[in-house]
Design a protein around this nucleic acid. Structure first.
Lengths: 199, 199, 199, 199
DNA sequence: ACTGTCGGGACCGCCCGTTGTT
DNA sequence: AACAACGGGCGGTCCCGACAGT
């Protein structure tokens, strides 16, 4: 048990350190030796736990996906109207943007790699499809409730996700360029106005 | 004169070859030697014209910005109503997405680097600010025309840019995942509905 | 007792697996981890039974020597004339070449190491000296019988061994280059003609 | 010119140093860094001139082949009887064995690699086929002269080559094990007796 | 303006062997 | 008797950039 625990600690240590390094310096610029040194483990340990640097990267991606899924799960259970739920989620955006700002560069890293490597892409697409389905259903419910216009739910979901991704990207690129909290709130208002049913 | 021309041709050859290589294999994965070989010049020529690999990268970015500016300029002179101009631009999205899809991964790498390197960031932010100003003015005009709701133009511009970026990114990640032409058209309809003035 | 048996089985398993791996990929190219994985044991087991990878190698060599000795022993007891015994052994050559062709590259590696490392050399020389003594005695007997020319037995033995080694090596290098069975038979006829007593 | 000369000197320096290292410590045990250090060049220079460590090895093999071919060419022009030519060549064996004793380990190295790698094998087989043809023709001439028994020339050539390879191998393995000069002379006498035509 | 050659550095991956645990 | 986990270190490769020579 003690051995297993130590092993998993080592593994976790490598993962978290790698995440930090990747976020700070980028995937390519981060050497395995650097990760090992920062994590306080040897290369032997590293390559015992992971087959390659990429494997660490993929593990990180997967972990991120799991978190995402959990967050979605939590939101799905709320029982208010569709527009309100969207509003609420929008108000979470700035919080996410600031609290996890260190993680976001890695998100870009994921994307960059995914655009080049098919195996990464497959793993990276999955959460999007999750999001897609989630929002499509939310919109569907909104339409059935009569609170949203009768649009194509898939397209609606895409709009939401795209807007969110775009805001994330720009917040990452130019954190001081605007009051992102304010902007994202405005954005959602505009979007909601476009989605909401005219009474 | 002829010498100058030759020199410029060499320079252009390096630039275009580099662009192709970067787009195909990525910035990091592309070696200077590879560019030189593909361009049919020696390393000496490369380092005569450019200070470093990064410098080529930046030059490419700048060239792209110039093109962008020209495109925006062209759009700004049209004399229809704001909503119509937005609609028209939206219809260009799928075309852009397909014609320049090879370049987009490179821009992702731009951004990734930009999130780390301040000097790259400045160059990368510039086009956004261009876009930002352009759309803000367009919205402002729309408001003055009375065709758009009186919202904060800056936020409105941000929404448009974010949505566009997001769609681009997702089209890149999963080109077969959806009919992006259709989706982007729907997206703009939704967005326009949110922006347009209720009559 | 059962434990001892299990231990011996593990040891034997490692040895045979290592032999297979060495033959397939070569000594240098075969990693200890690979052997362990193929044998279904852990590294701990490996290093419990053997001091090093080299030690396994040496063990294999020794085992081969024992086999060799037995084969020679068997031949020595036959009671025909010297030339006939040589002929008979020659006819075995192609069989050996085909049945153990997989092992031969390994012995080449043995020798390569032997040419460098004194301790390996001693072990590698031993079988040669065995052969040497065996053939020298066989020739001696032939001379005494009057069936062979009165030559220096040591030199005669060397010729036989050299010829055999040479054929083996070339058969290894270019298996399809010639009909080695035919060639080796011809070779022995020529050699025998050189050794046999003129009547 | 000066530049080209320098370049070729560097290349030659790398080749000769590599040959020495390979012969001394073996191909696998010799690191590129070691070669570079011994040759007084940088790794950059090494990989500018050669694509890989293997490439150096192959170059060495080819150079050896060229030498061989020259030696054969020289021998082919002599105009004595076949048996005498064979005798003369035999008398060269011990000289070769001692003068080039440093090169011989590499010869084993060639063989070992050839047994594993098809591309090396192809290059390594070529000289053997040269030898083969050379000796076959020599024997053919001997038969036509009436100085040699009417045997299959191909087989005869194989015997000669095999015997020579075998002696080389054993001389390498156990230099002090016998008086190789004497042995090789005896060997040829025996072989010649087997080849020569009975009068 | 352009070329060929070289310098030095670091990268990832793997490897052999050991150690604490069971 | 065997195992998982780990320690360092070296392996070949390649890369960016410099610079002497045209």
């Amino acid at each position: 048990m003690t051995q297993q625990q130590r092993s998993q600690e080592t593994r976790a240590q490598i993962l978290s350190t790698a995440a930090r390094c990747f976020a700070q310096n980028g995937y390519n610029a981060t050497g395995v030796a650097e990760i090992c040194a920062s994590a306080g483990v040897s290369k032997g340990a590293f390559y015992y736990h992971f087959a390659s640097k990429q494997a660490v990267f993929m593990d990180l991606l997967n972990a991120w996906m799991v978190d995402l899924e959990a967050a979605l799960e939590a939101m799905a259970t709320e029982a208010t109207s569709a527009p309100e739920r969207l509003s609420k989620m929008a108000r979470m955006m700035p919080v996410i943007l600031q609290s996890e700002s260190a993680q976001i560069p890695m998100f870009l890293e994921f994307w960059t790699q995914a655009s080049r490597d098919a195996s990464v892409r497959e793993a990276a697409i999955a959460p999007y499809q999750k999001f897609q389905r989630f929002f499509a259903q939310l919109i569907q419910e909104g339409i059935e409730e009569g609170t949203l216009e009768p649009i194509n739910p898939a397209s609606g979901a895409q709009v939401i996700i795209s807007l969110a991704s775009g805001l994330l990207l720009q917040g990452l690129l130019d954190p001081q360029g605007a009051d992102w909290g304010h902007v994202s709130e405005d954005s959602v208002q505009i979007l909601l106005k476009g989605l909401k049913r005219r009474t």
